[in-house]
Amino acid sequence: MSEVLAIEALTVTYGRGPVVRALWLRLARGDVLGLVGESGCGKTTLGWSILGLLPRGAQVEGTIRFEGADLWSLDGRDRRRLLGDRLAMIPQGGSGALDPLYRIGDQIVETVLAHRHVSRAEARAMALRQLRAVGIPDPEARLASYPHELSGGMRQRVSIAMALVLDPSLLIADEPTSALDVTIQAQVLALFRDLIHERAGAAIVISHDLGVIAQLCNRVAVMYAGQIVEEAPVGQLFAEPRHPYTRSLLAAHPALGRQGDRLATIPGTVPDPASPPTGCRFRPRCPVAVAACGREPPWVERPGGGVRCVHHAAG
């Protein structure tokens, strides 16, 4: 199998405490992994740490290997060579990813020229093809548009186009549809689903919305308080959630909640990274917590994934 990404024992610490803790993750070619969890669980930090673009003052331990290369040991120039080319990101709130002062076309062209020895005209042609591929009407004219002249949905399509222009082997999409209204969201999702498989080698889709994950991904990793608490193929996760947190998430989702159940909210709040609870991070909010949860829960391997919960250790 061809491994695209391997994260081993990754810990990311900001001033107050670890935001991502001892996290392991593997991604093979063709994988589209959904990374799901409440806001503040560390999924966006995980995304940016793969690109090596964490805010000032962040400390990182562990290794991230991308196509065999240890990303954090690369120097700036070598890492830059990967970014935007083999390793691309669609940042959260897509419209904010575009520089307001530059034309759409110029921003895509700039990305192409940073990585490929092609003429400006060729780069422009690539940008144009790309805008067409993401379904932007009148792409020729849009090349000359400024971001503020486009709607949110169109800007998000531009972000997608820009990330895919060089056919990356790994695409990370952070909340690719959350800033859009519902009808646009559906269109962008459909487009995105097709494009990921066509253009990217593998992808990580970060979302708090299980519906988005269900449509785009073949695997799901559920994150809670900086750790992955459950990982499973997408069908299995929805059919047979094992971790109590996963169950709560599913119950809280309007479309996915089991029929007849009342839509539940998860009581309590995400723990503060500076002072997480001991043992299982979810214990204070867990409906089935027992005394054994006070100890660090084991990672229990399952076909296609695993679960971090003491209730599954015995069986």
Binding site: L53, A97, P100, T111, H115, M162
Partner: peptide, 23 residues
């Protein structure tokens, strides 16, 4: 955000700081 996004596209530090930042 757009500055980190510019970095994520692999632009040189000069292009990021001067081209997008200073501009």
């Amino acid at each position: 955000d757009f500055l980190r996004a510019a970095r994520s596209r692999g632009l040189s530090e000069r292009a990021v700081v001067l081209g997008h930042g200073l501009r």
